[in-house]
Amino acid sequence: MKTELEYISLPPQECLSHVIESIWMVRNHSEESVEAIILPDGKIDLFLFLDQEANFEIFISGICNEPILKQPFPKSVMFAVSFYPTAAEYIFKRSFTDSLNKKIILPPGFMEFCREDMQDFDIFYKKVDRTIQSLLTEPIDNRKILLFDLVNRSKGEIKVETIASETGWNSRGINRYFRKWLGITLKSYIDIIKFCNSLKQLKNGNFYPELNYADQSHFIRAVKKFSGSKPNVLRKNDNDRFIQLTTLSDE
């Protein structure tokens, strides 16, 4: 049985590409109540949620380093903005150390978002663009832009020492930054990104590491750590339980 998920994901405008990874929507057309699992992806996510009873909620989640169980909500829709970690400092201007693996319920009207924004995804996308541009009031430190660019372009196949050398930012200072704003170390963040970049091969049934894990046993341990499941369970993805695998492109 499938949960009949409709998924749309769009990149942000170029001027926001250092703080936003994507603006997206998931609509569940099914009447079935099936629990879902959100896997770690190294993002801070802002959600607008509307269920079939028209109950509306805005919430935000910080970085996750373990799988998060999402309660079943049939006939529901979720609009979301996935932010890069730089958004903690430059957009939200608050630390997310208290929301590691947690969600924080926000009041209606947060960032001027409301129930009516969920009537049209295109309108929501444009509102996100306007709102976040207005909040990005200072230039982002070039070292931080380069750091996250290095991690993402390498798919997590990069060492802390290399990042420190390339950015001119010593590893102690980098880890102070990560602990202050996100509640994790740079090494933990790199491991999350590497796991996230392994999802496509898992979806395709390839359980031997394509990225630089020491060996297959190391890879399987990492998969179990971040997903809570063995690789073959992710591959089956029964009832579309693992949201990122369900929405992952087959291309």
Results as ranks from 00 to 15, higher is better:
Pro40Phe: 05
Ser33Thr: 06
Glu57Pro: 09
Phe96Trp: 10
Glu57Cys: 00
Phe83Thr: 11
Ser30Gly: 01
Pro107Arg: 08
Lys43Tyr: 10
Ile63Asp: 03
Glu53Trp: 04
Phe59Gly: 06
Lys102Gly: 08
Gly109Val: 01
Ile38Ala: 11
Glu53Asp: 15
Phe47Trp: 08
Ser76Trp: 06
Pro67Val: 13
Met118His: 02
Leu106Lys: 00
Asp41Pro: 01
Pro108Asp: 10
Leu46Phe: 15
Gly109Phe: 00
Ser95Cys: 03
Asp117Glu: 07
Leu39Cys: 04
Phe83Ala: 13
Asp117Cys: 00
Ile58Met: 14
Ala54Asp: 08
Ser33Glu: 09
Asn101Trp: 03
Ile60His: 03
Ile58His: 03
Ile44Gly: 08
Ala88Asn: 06
Ile60Val: 13
Ala80Lys: 12
Arg94Ser: 09
Ile37Asp: 01
Ile68Thr: 14
Ile44His: 02
Val81Leu: 03
Gly109Thr: 15
Phe92Pro: 08
Lys103Val: 07
Phe110Glu: 14
Glu57Met: 08
Met78Glu: 15
Glu32Ser: 06
Cys114Ile: 08
Tyr84Gln: 05
Ala54Gly: 10
Ile104Ala: 04
Asn101Gly: 07
Ile91Ala: 11
Ile104Leu: 12
Asn101Pro: 09
Tyr90Arg: 13
Asp98Asn: 15
Pro107Asn: 07
Pro67Glu: 07
Pro107Leu: 02
Ser99Ala: 12
Arg94Gly: 04
Glu31Trp: 04
Phe73Glu: 15
Lys75Ala: 01
Cys64Arg: 14
Arg94Tyr: 02
Phe56His: 02
Val81Lys: 08
Lys75Gln: 14
Ile68Glu: 11
Ile68Met: 15
Leu48Asp: 04
Ile60Glu: 12
Leu48Val: 04
Ser30Val: 08
Lys70Val: 12
